[in-house]
C-alpha cells in the first residue's frame, strides 16, 4: 500500500471519528433538551417538589442552587484572589512555592466525593453545623478554590509586566500596583474565569449530598429574615440543590413522574450551564473592548 492511499484512508478514518464524536455529543445535548424542555414551564420552575404525587416542581431546589452558588462564590473568590496574587506577584521560585503549588494541584484533583465527605466530617459533624447551606457552601468552596485560583493566576499572567514596572516607577507599592493597575486591567479575563467556575459549582452534586443534605424543607418566600427557620436566606437549613435532586429522585424517588422531573431538571441544569458559558464569553469580550477603546 503506498503512502498516498494510506494517507487517504487515515484521513477518512479521522473524518469518521470526528463525525461520530460530534454525533454522540449532539445526541447527548439533543436528548437532554428534547426530552426535558417540554417539561419545563413557569409552574415547574417555581413550585416546590412533591414527594409522593406527580406534578411537583423544582422551585426550592433552583433557589437553593443559586443561593449556594452565590455563598460559595462569596467565600471562595476573595481567598482565591489573595492566593493567586501571592503566588503570581510575590512568591519566589523556590521549594516552598513548589510545595504550595503541589498542594493546590492535589486539591484540584481530589474526587469531589472525597471533598464532600471531608465537609461532612468537619462541618456537619465536628462543627455541628448539620446538613446546612453553610456546610454545603464550605464544601463547594474547597471544590472551587484550586480552579479559581489557577484561573485568576492565568488572568494576572495575561497582563504585561511593563504595567507592573509602570506602577512601581511611579512610587506605588507592588500591592497598590496589583490592586489599582493590574486587577482592573484583568477584570474581563477574571470575570470569564469566575463565571466558568460558577457553572461547575452550579452542577456539582457529589460534594453536596452529605453537606447541604438531600432534603428541601418548605420555604416561606415572604420571610427574608435569615434567622427564621423557614426563611429562604437561613444558612442553617438543609438545602437540596437541583443537581442533588436529579440524583436523589433517580436513586430513591417515589413520585410517579420522577423521570419527567429528572428530564426537566437536567434540561434546566444544562441550559443554565450554557448560559453561564455564553455570558462568560460575551461579558469577557465586551469588557475587554470597553477597556481598550474609547
Amino acid at each position: 500500500m503506498n503512502s498516498k492511499v494510506q494517507n487517504k484512508i487515515a484521513i477518512g478514518v479521522l473524518y469518521g471519528i470526528a463525525g461520530l464524536v460530534v454525533l454522540i455529543l449532539l445526541a447527548l445535548v439533543g436528548y437532554i433538551l428534547v426530552s426535558g424542555l417540554p417539561k419545563v414551564s413557569w409552574h415547574f420552575l417555581t413550585t416546590p417538589a412533591k414527594a409522593f404525587l406527580k406534578g411537583g416542581g423544582i422551585g426550592i431546589q433552583l433557589f437553593n442552587s443559586f443561593y449556594l452558588l452565590i455563598l460559595a462564590m462569596l467565600i471562595s473568590f476573595p481567598i482565591a484572589l489573595g492566593a493567586a496574587i501571592y503566588l503570581y506577584e510575590y512568591a519566589k521560585d523556590n521549594w516552598v512555592t513548589n510545595l504550595v503549588r503541589t498542594a493546590i494541584e492535589i486539591l484540584s484533583s481530589l474526587p469531589s466525593v472525597v471533598v464532600g465527605l471531608f465537609g461532612f466530617l468537619f462541618f456537619v459533624v465536628k462543627l455541628r453545623l448539620g446538613f446546612s447551606i453553610l456546610s454545603g457552601a464550605f464544601a463547594l468552596t474547597f471544590f472551587n478554590l484550586p480552579l479559581l485560583t489557577r484561573s485568576i493566576e492565568d488572568s494576572l499572567h495575561t497582563i504585561d509586566d511593563k504595567q507592573r514596572e509602570g506602577g512601581l516607577a511611579l512610587g506605588l507599592s507592588r500591592w497598590e500596583t496589583v490592586t489599582r493597575v493590574i486587577l482592573p486591567a484583568a477584570v474581563p479575563s477574571i470575570l470569564t474565569g469566575v463565571i466558568l467556575s460558577a457553572g461547575r459549582v452550579f452542577g456539582e452534586a457529589a460534594a453536596l449530598i452529605y453537606t447541604a443534605g438531600q432534603s428541601a424543607p418548605a420555604l416561606n418566600f415572604m420571610d427574608w429574615n435569615p434567622f427564621n427557620i423557614s426563611s429562604p436566606l437561613n444558612p442553617m437549613r438543609p438545602a437540596e440543590t437541583l443537581a442533588v435532586h436529579i440524583w436523589k429522585i433517580n436513586s430513591e424517588g417515589i413520585m410517579p413522574d420522577a423521570k419527567a422531573i429528572s428530564s426537566g431538571s437536567s434540561a434546566v441544569l444544562v441550559i443554565a450551564i450554557l448560559l453561564f458559558n455564553l455570558a462568560a464569553r460575551y461579558l469577557g469580550k465586551r469588557l475587554y473592548k470597553r477597556l481598550t477603546s474609547a
Partner: peptide
C-alpha cells in the same frame, strides 16, 4: 505605600496558607 505593601503581603499570604491548610486538613482527616 510601604505600609500597604506589608498589609497586602500578609493578606494575600494568609489566603494562600488557608488553601494549604484545607489540603492538609482533608488529607489528615
Amino acid at each position: 505605600a510601604a505600609k500597604l505593601e506589608i498589609w497586602g503581603r500578609v493578606v494575600s499570604f494568609s489566603a494562600l496558607i488557608l488553601i494549604v491548610a484545607v489540603v492538609v486538613a482533608i488529607i489528615g482527616f
